[in-house]
Amino acid sequence: MAMRKKWHRFIGAWTSAGIFRDLGLAMSLSPRVVRKIIKPTVFILMLLPLAWVFYGWWLYIMGDLSLVTANPIEYTNRHLGDWAMRFLLVTLAVRPLSRIKSLVWLMQLRRMVGLFCFFYAFLHVSSYVVLDQFFDWPEILDDILKRQFITVGMITLTLLTPLAMTSTKAMIKRLGSLRWQKLHSLIYLASVLVIFHYWMMVKGNQLEPKIYAFIVAALLLSRLPQRVKKRSKLAQEKAGLQ
C-alpha cells in the first residue's frame, strides 16, 4: 500500500512539475493548431523512413552501397519492417501518454500514426513479395507455412488489416463505438505477435528484440490500472442500478 502511494506521488510530482508544459507543449494547444501544424508535420516526419529507402536506392544505383548495403532488397525489407514495428509501438504509446494533461492532444494523431504503421507493414510485406520473391507464389506459400517467423508476421498483418479498414469516422459510427473498440483491441495481440516475429527472425542472442519486447510489455502494463478502474466502476454502476 505504501509502495502504491509513493508511486502515485511520483507520477503526480512528475506531471504537475509540468515538464511538458515547460517544453512549450502547453495545454493551450488548440485542436486547430494540432490539425493545421502538428499533424502535417508529423505526417511528413513519418514519411522520412520511406524517403530514406528511396534515397538509399538512388545512391546504390550511383554505385554507393553505404546506405542500402550490397543487398538492397534485404535492407529495404528489414528497414520497412523495423519502422512498421516502431510505429506500432508509437500508436500504442499514444493513449498512455495522452493521460498526461499537457499531452491530451496526442489523441488527435493516433489514427494517423496507426495508419502509418499499417502502411509500413504493407510495404514491408510487399517488398518481400515483389522484391525478394518476385511473385514466386509457391515459394511464398511455402515460407508462410514453414518459416514460423513469417507465419507469425503474416498473422500480424492480417490482424492489422481490419483495423486500418475501419479507421474512418463513418466506420466507427457503423460499427458502434463499443464494437469498434473491441475490434481495435486486436492491436494488443498484434503488438505481442510482432515482437515474436522479430525475436524469431533475429540470429543468435541479440539485444534489440528484448528492448522492443520490454517497451511493448511496459505499454500493455501501463493500461492495466485504467482497465481495473474502469471495470470496478462498471461493477459499481451495475450494483447501483440494482
Binding site: 550490397a70 543487398n71 525478394d132 514466386d136 515459394e139 511455402d142 515460407d143 517467423f149 527472425m201
Partner: peptide
C-alpha cells in the same frame, strides 16, 4: 528460417 533452395547472388535482382 530461410528456404535454402534458392539464393540471392549479391548484385542480381532475381533469385
Amino acid at each position: 528460417r530461410w528456404s535454402q533452395s534458392t539464393e540471392r547472388r549479391i548484385g542480381e535482382f532475381f533469385r
